[in-house]
Design a protein around this nucleic acid. Structure first.
Lengths: 353, 353
DNA sequence: GTGAAAGCGCTAACAT
DNA sequence: ATGTTAGCGCTTTCAC
């Protein structure tokens, strides 16, 4: 297995090692190792070594380095699912940020399954990641508390949890903004198609929405609340249940754009027109929201990813992580009577080939 | 760095090692190492060792094992972007398949940038992945040929390339199916909003579409072809350019659903109604397609992911990889005059909290 | 600055 | 089946 002659795509010598570099330069391995980490042009030795490395096509072996040093130069990111564009956007930004700094990201997807969450974190840990980005936190702190107890630097992203460092959107504010907007548009009886309550993000949106509605004198009727998932199918089902029960609401806040898409088809099937009969607000401002002319809240995913990565790398170097909350932005479109066919949203996600 | 007393969350003894297990059981390290890989109940020694391991909370160190054995138990997946739901779905399936078999996935995103492609593959290689899944192949073979030359098992997924093992959707067939459908619906002058030609997937769709139209006696007019990206913004821009030039087409095939979403807003802005004035077909059958009532081609992403992972793991064990092509499926909806508000598509992607 | 020696945790020849 | 002996490629003490 160890360089059987001829099995290596490079020359017969096999993948170049530090020792080979040492022989070639007449220096000692340790000297070479150190010189390699100085700037190429900082001194004659460094330059000599760097040139030799380039000639041999030397690539350091992070495995061996990690084994000895205890640092892997990799962080782990645990996502609930990368098919959630929000998580994918966060990942992309983290990947970009971190790779530029010589780090690497190992991802894991848990589908929000508690068993998988622990298993994947353990896997990441056994690969010795230097820190963890947790994108699948649940509000009941069990999982996150356990992560904290591991003694590894960590930062929550997108979904926060009490007492843990996190980078999130101000979901409660977002909920309030939506309430303000709907009431301003004249809707006094509105519905809520909420996401799972164990997600601090969904929870926060619902709380802000409800609180602000009460403050505005248009309190949310519990009979007009449906809760469930974040998918189009659950959104459709929720809206269907709602419509079977009541038809006297004139607006609704959906936990995500996908839910809004589902709700839209339920409305259409019931002969109700989006915007005219029922005003809808989504969440995430996906590209498709533009086509449906859907009012939506844009939460700053890229920024969350960048800030979380930055914070985690700081934590790895000993800077204590302090939670941050980023501002959401309401994008008004036709589904709440805003200007129809408004300018296209920032082109963040693409797909298909 | 190596277990400074008190810095470890576990007992003062530090993370348990094979040596500690050996001392505790009175066996030799190598014996323990081997016993650990036998079934727990296969013989008395194995049982003894497994129990001791459980008591100590022993977790093998893959780093050390890899360094010695040359196998990491990890595969690398290179994606062009995980914000492409198609790639995310493939990743999710790969992750699931591979983790179940004791492997791990390291992802990398290249945004289709040639520099990043090589850099990330090299990074994955320096982490010593046992094989590569390439999701960002370009039709000009440079990159892929280079990957092949590395001597590491690899499989292309979603986008194929001549002479390389791949798992793809039959994109050409998909293009033909769309042509058949549009012509059957009575459209004889149709447009094409194509994706990038360097993607074998986009290219195949375009070729199939064009070829079949010609066979049906309704050849594609070059003046009705716009090509570009796969995003909503590019789709909108493309449709706007097209409309500025011609208004005599009655149907269009879009490279992806996102493009179709963009095209839809362009149509709306021009006062044209989807389905009535212009029939549209998308690609990927995203959830949002349902809400827009968009006819779309469903390509079997999950299956692609699973088959590709399976093929790669086979290749790692020496089974030669043989390319496979999976069948697409046309989902007819209102945008081509199909039944409006049809049943909701399979609930594959969710999002937002 | 550099060289020497030790060792990270594990697996893979060898013997026995 | 078990013990012995090496050693993966690198970093990190320690001396000088």
């Amino acid at each position: 297995m160890t360089n059987p002659p001829g099995s290596d795509p490079l020359a017969g010598a096999g993948r170049p090692t530090l020792r080979m570099l040492a022989e070639r330069t007449g220096l000692h391995m340790s000297t070479v190792s150190r010189a390699l980490r100085r700037e190429p042009a900082s001194d004659p030795t460094a330059e000599l070594v760097h040139r030799a490395a380039a000639e041999l096509g030397y690539r350091p072996d992070p495995l061996a380095a990690s084994l000895r040093s205890g640092k892997t130069g990799a962080i782990g990111m645990v996502a609930h699912s990368l098919t959630d564009i929000a998580q994918a956007m966060i990942y992309e930004e983290v990947d970009h940020y971190v790779v530029e700094r010589g780090y690497d990201v190992l991802v894991a997807s848990t589908r929000d399954d508690p068993g998988a969450q622990r298993k994947r974190v353990e896997l990441l840990l056994s690969r010795r990641v230097d820190g963890l980005l947790i994108g699948d936190a649940h509000r009941d702190g069990d999982y996150v508390d356990w992560v904290a107890s591991l003694g590894v630097p960590y930062v929550l992203v997108m979904r926060g949890a009490e007492g843990h460092p996190s980078v999130t959107c101000d979901d409660e504010l977002a909920g309030r903004m939506v309430a303000d907007h709907l009431v301003e548009c004249g809707h006094t009886r509105v519905a809520l198609l909420a996401g799972p309550d164990w997600s601090a993000a969904s929870h926060g949106r619902a709380v802000g929405f409800r609180t602000r509605l009460a403050e505005l004198g248009a309190p949310l009727d519990d009979d007009l609340v449906e809760s469930g998932g974040l998918h189009a199918a659950t959104g459709r089902a929720a809206m269907e249940r709602l419509l079977a029960r009541r038809r006297d609401f004139t607006g609704a806040f959906c936990a995500s754009d996908f839910v809004a898409f589902g709700a839209t088809s339920a409305l259409a099937a019931a002969g109700l027109r989006l915007g005219d009969d029922v005003a809808l607000v989504g969440f995430n401002d996906l590209q498709a929201a533009t086509s449906l002319d859907l009012t939506s809240v844009r939460s700053p995913q890229e920024e969350m990813g960048r800030v979380a990565a930055e914070m985690l790398m700081g934590a790895i170097e000993g800077v204590p992580a302090v939670s941050r909350t980023l501002a959401p932005q309401l994008i008004v479109r036709g589904s709440t009577g805003g200007p129809a066919a408004s300018a296209l949203a920032a082109d963040v996600a693409g797909a298909g080939a």
